[in-house]
Structure formats: C-alpha cells, structure tokens
Design a protein around this nucleic acid. Structure first.
Length: 280
DNA sequence: CGGCAAACCTGCGAGC
DNA sequence: TGCTCGCAGGTTTGCC
C-alpha cells in the first residue's frame, strides 16, 4: 500500500494517538520480518514518545530514552489504532503490538513481511544502514529541477526507473512515478540522460505536486486521519493513469477505440501506465 | 559504478 | 469448487 503520501498520513495518525504517551508493553508475535525484530524492542517499555516523524518511507518514533523506533511498512504493512476499551479481532499477520500506558494499542500487521522494525540510538540515526544512502526528500528545498537535471545527466536508465531510485530522491514509488511523468508529459521510457533541463524542472515540480495532492487527499478524507476501524493511511485515491490501462486519458479527447487509451508497460518488473499521445 | 534480474513473502482475482 | 497463474503500492543483493 504505502508510498510517501500514505506513510505521511500514517505518521500523522500515529502522532495524534501516541505523542506524549508512554509505552507500557511491546508484544512481538512474529520476529521474522524483512529483518529480524531486534531483541531490544520490548525494552522501550517505560519510555515516552517525544515525537513522530518520517524519513523517506520510514516512520520514526523518537523516544525520551535516547532511542528511536523505526518502522517500514513494506508493500503490505498497516497500522491500526485500538483505543482504550475498543476491541480488535486478532488478524493472521498482526506481528507487533505496542501497548500504551493510557490503554490504547497500536497494531502493526504485514502479510508479506517486507516491512521491518528497528531500534537505533537517536544520535546515530543518520548513520543507520537504512538511511545512509538516501537522497533528498522530494518536498524539501534541496529537491530542485537543477538538482534533478544534474542527477539524471549521463544516465542511460529509463527516467521512470531513475526517479524511483531512493538514492536520487526518496519516496517516489511505482504509482507516483507514473503519475508524475504523466503530469509532466514525459515518456517513461526516455533515457534519463536525454531529459532536458527544462523538462527536469517540470518533472521535479510535478513530483512535488502529485505527492502534495495525495497527502492532502489523505488528510481530508479521513476524520483525524483514522478510519472508523482505526486503520491508518488508506484513502480514496484519484489517479490519472495508474491502473487505468485501456481507459481514456484524462488529458486527451482522442477516440479511445482508435488509440487504445492509456497503455501499460513493464519496466524493471513493475507496471508503468502512460498516455503515448500526451507523453513524449 | 551502471544496469538488470532475482530474491524476500502472502493474498487475491481471473481464467479454466 | 478448486486449481494455477499473474499480479500487487518496496528494497536489497548478487551477477555481469
């Protein structure tokens, strides 16, 4: 499920439920995730959540004991908030439960187990193996058209794969890569190095725009970012091309029976959706 | 280092 | 109904 906007929405929901609260107990039902759940995780019991933030697609819980708890949702990870007094029917892949002192619980469920949890000293976080190689945040100042143009220079790889490389910029996953290239009018198969500076400028601003729009949709479609069942981060998406092969391109008025509409292709074993008429 | 395929793991819908 | 196949929003690893 999660790309950057979904993770951002989950973070905001968690922040509302957990900031300032004390962890009473940690239950680990399954240790074998993408990386093994650290033995030290249950030892955060007794610590207070100072701040919740996001780096790339990682959720960071900064605790008042000098540690930061790191969550990644992988492909299928979900967070559910169970308030005090509410019930939660146990599910097959509920791997980790954080019990808060106030009686609420946070349940991490991940069927495919591509997600992970880790604990790291907050002061050493930047040097953590998971973060050391990450590029800039797409919504930060450092991610400019000039930066993108410079990073794409000389690359033979398709521009769609290039912008999904977390070393270049973080948080752009398979869906929003397609969406941003559509908005920018750029053919996803073009060699990254062939993208002109003006196009890179447009692409950078379109990446920011699609992510911001999705974050806004996540925030506005959820009451306090939490659905009735407590599940975080899912919301009604409004994609232009993703998953819409054979449908009419929202920017074209051409005859779909002649053009075939939006096309699907495979790049790096992932689906790409695009409009051949709009994207050159 | 660049580029690419395969690997990790489970669930779901389509088609037979 | 039940089987097989293809596909799924992420990231790492290993090979050439």
């Amino acid at each position: 499920m999660p790309e950057l906007p979904e993770v951002e929405t989950v973070c905001r929901g968690l922040a509302k439920a957990m900031t300032g609260e004390v962890i009473a107990r940690v239950d680990v039902a399954r240790e074998k995730l993408r990386t093994p759940v650290p033995k030290s995780l249950p030892a955060i019991a007794g610590a207070r959540v100072e701040e919740i933030s996001r780096r790339a697609k990682y959720i960071l819980l900064r605790m008042n004991n000098g540690e930061t708890v790191i969550f990644h949702l992988g492909m299928s990870g979900r967070m559910t908030i169970v308030k005090k007094g509410e019930t939660h029917a146990p599910e097959k892949h509920d791997h980790i439960t954080l019990h808060l002192k106030n009686g609420a619980r946070i349940v991490f469920n991940d069927a495919r187990r591509f997600g992970l949890v880790d604990v790291e000293k907050t002061e050493r976080l930047d040097a953590h193996k998971l973060f050391a190689h990450l590029g800039p945040e797409p919504l930060d100042r450092g991610f400019t058209g000039a930066y993108l143009a410079q990073k794409l220079k000389g690359k033979k790889v398709a521009v769609k794969l290039a912008i999904m490389d977390q070393r270049l910029v973080v948080g752009v996953g398979n869906i929003y890569a397609s969406e941003a290239l559509f908005m920018a009018g750029i053919d996803p198969e073009r060699a990254a190095g062939k993208i002109k500076p003006a196009e890179a400028e447009k692409l950078a601003s379109c990446i920011r725009a699609v992510l911001k729009k999705a974050i806004a949709a996540g925030g506005s479609s959820l009451r306090d970012y939490v659905q009735a069942d407590g599940e975080l981060g899912y919301f009604q998406h409004q994609w232009a091309v993703y998953g819409k092969a054979g449908e009419k391109c929202p920017g074209c008025d051409c005859d779909i029976r002649k053009t075939g509409g939006i096309k699907r292709l495979v790049q790096g074993a992932r689906s790409t959706f695009y409009c051949p008429k709009k994207q050159k």
